[in-house]
Design a protein around this nucleic acid. Sequence first.
DNA 1: ATATGTTTCGCAAACATTTGCGGAACATAG
DNA 2: CTATGTTCCGCAAATGTTTGCGAAACATAT
Lengths: 340, 340
Amino acid sequence: MAKHITQKDIAKKLGVTRVTVSKALNDYSDISVSMRRKVREVAAEAGYIVDHGARSLQMRKTNTVGVVIPEVSNSFFSFVVHGIMDAAATHGYRVILTVSREDPKIEEQNILTLLSHRIDGLLVAISKDTDNPAIFETVRKMEIPLVFFDRTMDALGFSTVGINDRKAAKEIVEFAISQGYHKIAHLGGSQSVAIGRDRLAGYIDALKKHNIPRRDEWIITGGFDNSSGYDGFKRLMRTGNLPEMVFAANDRIAQGAYKAIKEAKLIIPDDIGVVAFGHSEFAELLSPSLTIVDCPPIVLGQKAMELLVSEIAHTTNRGQHHLILDTTLRVNDSILLGEK
Amino acid sequence: MAKHITQKDIAKKLGVTRVTVSKALNDYSDISVSMRRKVREVAAEAGYIVDHGARSLQMRKTNTVGVVIPEVSNSFFSFVVHGIMDAAATHGYRVILTVSREDPKIEEQNILTLLSHRIDGLLVAISKDTDNPAIFETVRKMEIPLVFFDRTMDALGFSTVGINDRKAAKEIVEFAISQGYHKIAHLGGSQSVAIGRDRLAGYIDALKKHNIPRRDEWIITGGFDNSSGYDGFKRLMRTGNLPEMVFAANDRIAQGAYKAIKEAKLIIPDDIGVVAFGHSEFAELLSPSLTIVDCPPIVLGQKAMELLVSEIAHTTNRGQHHLILDTTLRVNDSILLGEK
DNA sequence: ATATGTTTCGCAAACATTTGCGGAACATAG
DNA sequence: CTATGTTCCGCAAATGTTTGCGAAACATAT
């Protein structure tokens, strides 16, 4: 914190008090126009930069929001962050980003750190194992606006931004069924997170609707990363009864499944198809390109930030807003179309 | 900034002054052990969280560093951020991340914002068009430690962390030559950035060394993103004289080139090979997997952060440290080995 | 001349901390 | 009983801001 010009320094140069400088910089009608001009000149010339900490100490507002995500180096979340930062910039907010590494303990620590920074609001995608809502109760008691995105947590009264996971899961599975697939396995995500449970539920909905018996050894749940997908598919293989289609809870899981499938010398989509939840930037990187329910991460980030901004602005009527984003089915090369 | 418990609140509950509370929480031997214990109890029970802003106002140290990168949704940088956050956490620093979107104007604004937060140090990868060092001169005058990583800027006396771009470029091009490739084009990055210039220079070095005449229409420079690679390869095609190998300045450029190549119904590596600078996480996502000079982003981030921490600690002997990371050649499927 | 109004600035307090110093209260020693 | 030492806590100032209020200085109106 070396060599910072303060209002006091400017005041000294002009022979006035720091109060005058503060008011001049904030365009108080209190101060004569000529004085305001002079102050601005000297400030600019001296390289004055307002001390954000000192200001927010006085103003009781930091214009900063805290973000907690499970991983940065996850394409989906990095695009979400992209969207968050876009919206934050247009609304005059700064962002402090923290990463939980899917560890509830780190997640809690991150939130405490953010609270210590007196952030105006919180944007959170919970880790896959978060089960204890204690820290969020704390946030609630402190009356700090919080919006969950993607990985949401219910029953806490906070607002959420996400998609209709159950419906979308049902749709994409039904699409596979419509293309002649009947032996469909599910590589699911963590069941302690709503999206994990809902995507599984949608899968089951689709099977039921089409009178396809559900096989429990074809339902494998775990984490949301590629190793879960890799291990999951290996387990599928050990059942000795391979499905014709894998429905993965997200694109990272699908990526892991791809690897296991290729190692088994199977061809996608000829030997086995793959569909998943995901986003197009990543789905199209995979080879063959992955057929997905596209959940647009940039829009997700923007909407979450905008909702948070509105909650910060309106002290009343906070929480309880549940924004459901539209998803689109993107049919790519990981599924065999038509007669099967 | 709603409902925060302060030291004053704790003091009131205990019938002591806030000074006692502050000292107790900071384990001053000044305060009796029993008092310290009581304060801690009440603080924990009331949910006290230190106000980081107020503390750093007094301490003149924020324990926060600012990071500026060109893009979050760029796999390379998101892994670098991963590394930065790892190292930051182990050294007790928090991170404020900003994104310039490759725009020097936003970049400057970001740095000003970070300075306004009184960050203890700065970690910067400059945008591809940054040519005006004015803002960095300001940082220098303020005596704020700054470390450039990946996209570095010379002649300002700041420390840098990167790789030996020229040497590595030469090596990978020579490797291509050794495999029988002689018609090698270069899809280069921005020439206003050192890594752009150096990678081009290394390419030329290799050609010279093997007495391969350089063809100017095979040297195309632009940005560092995939659209640059896409457009670049299209331009190569318009020359009517296709090379047998493309050396891309980074993996995003290579990704764009892949797309253009596939659209032209050409096969990698049979019809044309591709090599590039990059990192393995991304290179292996591409299909066929990309042959790269692997520049490990996580290590890069960690080392940059560690160097910054040491510069923050030692007021003397700042800057002028240039850390060169090791790179490794990863031969994947985008090149035809042997007899060509 | 006095009264009233306007412009322009400073005073003082507040925000949540930290820290050197002084000073009670107490204990020990002569 | 006084002198010295020790333990424990509060006072005050400082960090860089903002903002309501008061008060000069000046102008205008009666």
